[in-house]
């Protein structure tokens, strides 16, 4: 009887410790898996504020290398900019351009926290001395549904 029990317990342990089971989706707050690229790690929605300029920034980076940038500097509604981004995995440098073909004002050194909740962008144009810490946060509907589009996406059909 004990032998049967030990066998069952061993089998259960084997099942529980099966390393070949699929890895669950980490979700927004989970730690990136070791084999995950930097590009995958930064995908999502981020929030940054700069009190000195009164800036409130929401940044959405998508899997297909598109971005939506909601910015409010001072008063008023958020302004939406759209475009595309790319990242150099080796040098960990993020760059991009807007849909009106204007390049970003700077490339950025990228660092992501171990828990995946903080994305630090350091503008190389400032000698990477500044560090802008974005926190992972869903873009509120009050921002995305209540903004003024500045740079339009390719599929935007302006009324005028």
């Amino acid at each position: 009887m004990k032998k049967i029990l030990y066998t069952v317990m061993a089998l259960m342990c084997f099942v529980c410790c099966d390393k070949t089971s699929p890895t669950p989706d980490p979700g927004p707050g989970a730690s990136p898996q070791p084999e995950e690229t930097l590009a995958a790690a930064i995908i999502g929605e981020w929030h940054y504020t700069d009190a000195s300029l009164g800036a409130d920034i929401y940044l959405g980076l998508t899997e297909n290398k598109k971005f939506e940038l909601y910015q409010k500097i001072g008063d008023g509604a958020y302004h939406l900019y759209k475009g595309s981004w790319q990242i150099d995995e080796e040098s960990a440098v993020l760059s991009g351009k807007y849909n009106d073909s204007q390049a970003w004002g700077s490339e950025y050194d990228v660092a992501i926290s171990g828990d995946g909740k903080t994305l630090t962008l350091s503008p190389k144009a400032s000698g990477a001395e500044e560090k802008h810490a974005y926190t992972r946060e869903e873009i509120p509907a009050s921002v995305s549904e209540h903004c003024v589009t500045v740079v339009k996406s390719e599929d935007y059909s302006p009324v005028f």
Partner: peptide, 16 residues
């Protein structure tokens, strides 16, 4: 018209 000036703003006024 309120203006903020930074050394690395995009030419179209975008933050990045």
């Amino acid at each position: 018209i309120s203006i903020a000036s930074r050394p690395y703003a995009a030419k179209n006024g975008g933050w990045l």
